[in-house]
Each structure stands twice: as C-alpha cells, then as structure tokens.
Write a protein that binds this DNA or RNA. Sequence first.
DNA 1: GCCTATTTGTGCGTATGTATG
DNA 2: GCATACATACGCACAAATAGG
Lengths: 279, 279
Amino acid sequence: VANTPNYMLIAERLRKRIESGELKGGTQLPTELEMREEYGASRNTVRDAVKWLASRGLVEAYPGRGTFVTKRIVPFVITFSADPETGFGGGEGQAYVLEIEGQGRTPSVSAPQVGIEVAADAAPDLGLPAGAQVISRHQKRYIDGEPWSLQTSYYAVSLAERGATRLRDPSDVEQGVVGYLREILGIEQVGYVDRLGIRPVTSDEELFFELHAGSQRSVLENRRVAYDADGNPIRLTVSILHPDRTEIAIIEGQVPESARQERSWPIRHGRQPRPREGR
Amino acid sequence: VANTPNYMLIAERLRKRIESGELKGGTQLPTELEMREEYGASRNTVRDAVKWLASRGLVEAYPGRGTFVTKRIVPFVITFSADPETGFGGGEGQAYVLEIEGQGRTPSVSAPQVGIEVAADAAPDLGLPAGAQVISRHQKRYIDGEPWSLQTSYYAVSLAERGATRLRDPSDVEQGVVGYLREILGIEQVGYVDRLGIRPVTSDEELFFELHAGSQRSVLENRRVAYDADGNPIRLTVSILHPDRTEIAIIEGQVPESARQERSWPIRHGRQPRPREGR
DNA sequence: GCCTATTTGTGCGTATGTATG
DNA sequence: GCATACATACGCACAAATAGG
C-alpha cells in the first residue's frame, strides 16, 4: 500500500546506514555508478536519493571527489538572557567573547564594515520615520576560525551628530559600543527585546557559512532592539546564525549552577522523540 | 564568467516575479509545459527551477492541479522570558493561552497522550540514570486551527509514585501540571533553562505541520528543563515549533511597554540586509 | 461511477560540462 | 593529458492525483 518511490527507499537505506554509525562522518559513500548497480536503479534515481540526504545535511557531495557523510558538529551555546556575572549576554560584545572562551573555543571577529544607508527594515524598530538614514556596522564572526554569524547593528545618524562619531569609523570600539555611548552621550542601555525566527538561507549566506551549495538549509535570524533608560531604542542588531553551529540557551528564574554550565549535543537528524498518530 | 546553470537563472527570474509582488500568494504558476516554451528549456530543467523555489517555501506544487505561490504567514510570537503579569511564559500552559489570545488568535490543544517509556534523551536532563523510566505527556497544539507545535513533557516516574498520579492520566490537568505538583507534592517550579536549536524536519513532522512533502525545511526545537527550589530538575519539555508560524521573543532588562507589544513581520525570503563581500 | 484531459511525480537513458587528483 | 566523479540538461515514458464532463 505504502507506495514509496524508489529514490526514497534508497535514501532511507542510506540514512539508516549513516545513523546506525556504520557510515561515520567523513566516510565516502559509494559513487553514483556503484550505487546504480548496488540498488539496481538508474543513476538519476540514485542521485535523487543522495540529493534528499544532502538537503538535510546528512551528506555532502563534491564534484570530482565523491560524496561524503557529514561530520557532526558540537554547536556553540550562546545565552540569550542576563548572566549575573557578565551582565547582558546574547552573543554580543564582551559577553560573547567570554562565553565562547568559557567553552574552550576561540572567537574572532572581522573588522567592522561601516556604512550609512536608508533605514528600510530598521526604521520602525529604531523609532525613525521611513526613509531616515542610519549608520550600519557589519561584522563577520568566527569561532575556532569557522564562520559562525553575520551581524549588523544599526544606529540613528543623530547619535553620531551628537558626538558619538566613532560609530562612523570602520574600526572596533575597544570598550564596546555600549560603553562608548554611555561615556560620550551618557546613554545607558537598560534592556533589549530579541526576536528570533528561522528562514531559508540565502546564497550569500550559504557562501559565508560554508554550507554546501544548494544545501537548502535554514538559518536562525535574531533582531535585537536595545533601549535606554528613557525607553528609547538605541540600536537594532540583526544576527544571522549558523544553523548547525548554534544553540541558544535561555535561563529564566532560579536554576542550579550546574544547569548553567553549557552543555550541548550534536544535532540529531532522523527519528524524533514523538512519532505517534492521532489528533 | 559567472556560469550559473540554466535552472538557476529560471528560478531567479521566477523568484523576482514573486518577490516583486507580480505573482501574489495563491497565484498559479504557469504549468511546466508552458514554462518549457516560455524559457526555452526542457521540462526537467524547469522542474529543477521549481524544485529550488519549493525547497525554500516560495511555491508549493500539487500533483494534478499545478504549482502555486505560497501565501505569506504572519507568525505567532511567543515570549521566552518571564512576563511580570503571567509569570513564566514560553508557550506553555496558561501563559501560552493568554499570549496567543492577546494576539487575537485562538489556541487549542489536543488531549494529552500519556505513556511510560525508557528515558533515552531525557535521562541526563532529568538527572536520572540511563535507562530509567519516565512518564511522557505529549500534546499537539494548534493556533487558529492550524498546526503549530508538538510538545512532549517528561517526568520521573517517582513523582507519580509519590502521589502525583494524575501525571499518568491521559487527560488535562486543569490547574496545570505546575500547579498540580505544587498542590500535591509541594514542589515549586522556580526556574528553567531553555535550549533552542534548529534542525531539518522529519517526515512525521512534515505531515503534522502540513509542510509540503519534500519541502526540506527546518524546524525549531526547544528543550526546557524546569527546576524546583532545591535545584532538582522536575520536568523536561521538548517542543517542536512550526518554522513559518513561530517567532520567539526574549525580553531582558527594562524595556518600554510599547516594545512588549507583540509585533511581527512575515518571513522574508530572498535578499537579506547585508550582502557585501570581503573578510 | 466512469472517462478524459491536465498537471505534477517518478524513473530511465544519454550526452556533455566541470572539478579533482 | 587523463581518468574519475559529480552537475547540468534534454528527451521520453508512465504513474498518480485532480478537475470537469
């Protein structure tokens, strides 16, 4: 009755071999021509099966070399809630560096690319009229040398006009932008709102994240609006996060110290906790 | 120089027509045979283009009918941080109902499916030895009648043995499980840790979420471990969230009331804020 | 219910291009 | 240059789902 197509049957057989551990990360799959014989199907059908696996990130195909089982990754944990020690967290600035180093990994950041642009998306979040100009500061961020996130912060140009001119400099602000704004303009960041969502990766991001071309994966996108003590928005930060390398922790209320320790697990593909049927 | 394959060129042309608004949600695309002529390519090549769009959720193909532009969805916002009014939030129990209703939408929940199983994943989070048994309570949750999340909570069997027998009943606990455990066993939930990640959808989930078969999308998965006042884990709740219908808000520190209002935007596909190049 | 035309899904064969070693 | 392996592209046949008569 279950008339599952052939390419799916082949994909399932391969998936089981991968998930059982028979085919470990890094192992080369049989070539398409070998599998053509092995499964008694045409090369195109085998290819459909491999494509299905590739789109879920289970295997990666390289022209001229072969198809290999993807190595599992232990994701980085970033905490999206206040930490009593480091103050505000959430993968930005100082807190980000401390948290990643705490996990025994090495964070690095590209020099900021700075520009002035018309606020499109950013305008409403910053409380600016549509079409207003904003300063954008863009950074690429790496962990252990591997691409991890694309981050862009937007500020009203008025901040620079009022004296915070370094916002326009394409260089790092050593004490952090938060500290800089406090020092120069007396603006205190007292809170923020994060909006986290998920969407398909763009081709630019595919390139940066070194996701396999056509992998058709999704990324996490976070939009953080930070506020000063008067309740005015200071800053919008948009972060695009690597899907496999990111895990977000949120701590609320009172939890034991042991639970604060960053524990993480490699992403599980395949069967999940609760199949079952019935509405 | 840029030798982009034909199917990609076709896909890009279609994408632009969709994102420009020329092809609105619900519109039928030309049939494969029509596009075959329109673009002077073979049917298979056109199909590759359409598949590319489908895997990003831009279009949906129905056998026997045609291919249609996906309707954009306004996601539901759930707040993953304490709310002064409702106490703990995060899309569970009472807080979930209030929050969704506050957005003018109607939440509903299936009757819980209850079982006793060997804790596999759940054991370490609940502080149990590997192989220990746990009570699982599974619910399907809908918003405006549309599937929104699969949620399973795990409890140590010892809780039921100590008197909280209703954990084993496949029926709703009116006052909520949190309140029930407090009442019966005096266990107070004082905090929790969330772990949010992203992974490819399974075929079961594809079915439940009414994602198009082979859509090859990703889902959000959250694992919440709740603790009592002694720092012991009470409960692990695993939630699988619909990728297009979910947006997670996290509020930290002090933000103006206006920012607490749930604002959300439909998912943007295509070009993102920061292309630019250079390392 | 049946038949038919339309439309997408699956499967195969083949040829050629491109990247790798 | 050469062999290998994946990527693209086309043509064809048939299956399965849908809608309409």
